[in-house]
């Protein structure tokens, strides 16, 4: 499987990455190379094999339902670019 220039552009957009147009070809080639490398696994017969959800053979530990986090808003907001009335301010997201 190889990726086209357009597909790389779309993936970059989904990941909100700014890619210079002149770099698109190069990324397409490199990413296609990675896909081709991984594609070798298609040769393995996986009939009847349960897909692995996690490489570690263990199961999820559960936490008792008890609130134990103090309010540390002031510390978190000290490093935020913009806050007001306890809210984080971000560039307007709807027109």
């Amino acid at each position: 499987m190889s990726l086209s220039r357009d597909e790389v552009e779309k993936i970059a957009h989904l990941a909100r990455l700014a890619v210079r147009p002149e770099d698109l070809e190069g990324y397409a080639r490199e990413l296609s190379g990675i896909l081709a490398f991984v594609e070798q696994m298609d040769a393995a017969d996986t009939e009847g094999v349960t897909p692995m959800a996690h490489p570690v053979e263990a199961s999820q530990r559960l936490r008792p339902d008890e609130p134990d986090e103090p309010d540390r808003r002031d510390r978190f907001q000290a490093i935020a670019p913009s806050v007001e009335a306890g809210l984080y301010l971000v560039p307007r997201v709807i027109e």
């Binding site: 007001e84 809210l87 301010l89 971000v90 307007r92 997201v93």
Partner: peptide, 13 residues
């Protein structure tokens, strides 16, 4: 997201 006017910004809770 609170879209009321925070000087043209959006407030996040």
């Amino acid at each position: 997201s609170l879209h009321e006017d925070f000087h043209g910004m959006t407030g996040i809770d």
